[in-house]
């Protein structure tokens, strides 16, 4: 059996590194939640402006889109820490503890590798937008490096949380895949 509620929040124990990373991820989670709330308010403001004032709505749509994107990316490390990303742990459950440990190390390492790649190219993309002064093609013309910043920040923090997860498994503070022993 698998699913996302079988595993508990990642353990940090009293390890200072794990605790710092956990704190960073939590703050990222607050930021994500705040951005979602702001998106709700801005959308309602947009409806009000259009419906009641019958005026133009120039900046709201883009703001809301970029807020939700940023909330998603910046929220990644926090959800990782809560083990909120759905997974299918069919193999881990069928493995003996030792093999499960090895599998956890492999999957976390590959995840870290791919996230590092996303971080690298995401930073490059952000840098392009910044150095070339790209804007969106709307009247508002938002400078794109601002929303694109959420790519390196989000993947950077997710990378950090994944590294902490791997470290916690390696030193035995956390169980592989957060699964309790059978």
């Amino acid at each position: 059996m698998a699913g996302h509620s079988t595993a508990a929040v990642a353990h940090a124990g009293s390890n200072p590194f794990l605790r710092v990373v956990a704190a960073i991820s939590t703050v990222a989670g607050w930021c994500a939640a705040a951005m979602i709330v702001v998106a709700v308010v801005v959308t309602c403001q947009m409806i009000f402006v259009r419906l009641v004032l019958n005026a133009s709505t120039v900046w709201q749509t883009e703001t809301v889109i970029y807020l939700v994107i940023a909330a998603t990316l910046v929220g990644l490390p926090y959800v990782q820490r809560l083990r909120g990303h759905v997974n299918v742990d069919l193999f881990p459950l069928s493995l003996a503890p030792r093999a499960r440990f090895v599998l956890a190390c492999i999957t976390l390492s590959i995840s870290i590798l791919v996230m590092a790649m996303m971080l690298f190219y995401g930073t490059e993309f952000w840098y392009l937008a910044w150095s070339k002064g790209w804007t969106s093609d709307t009247v508002w013309g938002v400078r794109l490096w601002i929303p694109y910043l959420s790519i390196p920040v989000g993947f950077g923090l997710l990378l950090l949380q994944l590294a902490a997860d791997l470290y916690a498994v390696l030193i035995g503070i956390d169980k592989p895949f957060g699964l309790e022993d059978k």
Partner: peptide, 15 residues
């Protein structure tokens, strides 16, 4: 066109 129509007094909605 948004700029011109807004100048004509229309309200611009983006979707």
């Amino acid at each position: 066109f948004e700029q011109m129509l807004a100048g004509a007094g229309a309200s611009i909605a983006s979707m």
